[in-house]
Design a protein around this nucleic acid. Structure first.
Ligand SMILES: [Mn+2]
Ligand SMILES: [Mn+2]
Ligand SMILES: [Zn+2]
Ligand SMILES: [Zn+2]
Lengths: 123, 123
DNA sequence: TTTTTTTGCGAAATCAATTGCAATAAAAGC
DNA sequence: GCTTTTATTGCAATTGATTTCGCAAAAAAA
């Protein structure tokens, strides 16, 4: 039976406090502010458990690699600032799956990544 | 000075014959049909040279990883069939960068990946 | 208390990509 | 054509980054 460890609760808290895709290193760094003994292997183990439990999902950034974010937010897209490397949530979706692919292709899902400069880096 | 080796010409020919994003393994497999001695290290070395020369560009697939395709085709998107794992070219772009991100975000580029079943796998 | 999951730690496994080196071959010069 | 130069190749070994694992100690829940 799954136990509610301070480490696992801290990792979930990290995603509540930073509601955007986070890399493993970010989870570890933010998590250590809550539980300073937190170890990298524990982060990996819990990220996997939380994905299995459907509480997190994986997001793959073209150059930053694997990231994780909370589930339950509905379909949305992401913006990656190439200055600060932060990922941002972009609520909603204006993409029409039916009209973007030729006839015969069955579109089941899509990912949209925007790249550029975020408001806090633009000044 | 750069030499026109049979290996490098074969790799370029692979991309001409298969005008879609190809993974390193695909380039090696198709390339060996043209030059059977073709080696993986040679593929890696030449993919890098061809990217440097602006003849190929990298495309990162969320789960298949790094792929390469020819440059000069203009901005477009990709469809990945989850049955045969083939990548397809989708000419054109119906995405409006200005209206998809909130004010303050400077959008410089975007990637769109569609996932589903391609016409030859659908039957 | 007792049981058993979970952790921290270092070592180890993975996988993609790179490198050293002797052999090969492109292309320049004769 | 033939020789010389040196970029390039094939091969195996190696790197580097990420992820996993073994195990004793710690701690959650019964
Ligand atoms: Mn998100
Ligand atoms: Mn393409
Ligand atoms: Zn969408
Ligand atoms: Zn587009």
């Amino acid at each position: 039976m799954r136990r509610n460890t301070t480490q696992r609760m801290a990792i979930e808290e990290v995603f509540r406090q930073n509601d955007r895709p986070l890399g493993v290193d970010e989870v570890l760094a933010y998590g250590r502010k809550l539980v300073e003994s937190l170890n990298q292997a524990t982060v990996y183990r819990n990220l996997k458990l939380l994905v299995d439990d459907g509480r997190l999902k994986r997001v793959t950034h073209p150059s930053l690699g694997t990231m994780y974010e909370r589930t339950g937010k509905g379909h949305h897209h992401h913006f990656y600032c190439r200055a600060c490397n932060h990922a941002y949530e972009l609520p909603g979706c204006a993409l029409n799956e039916d009209e973007i692919a030729p006839d015969g292709f069955v579109v089941e899902d899509h990912d949209v990544f925007l790249f550029g400069i975020c408001p806090s880096c633009v000044r």
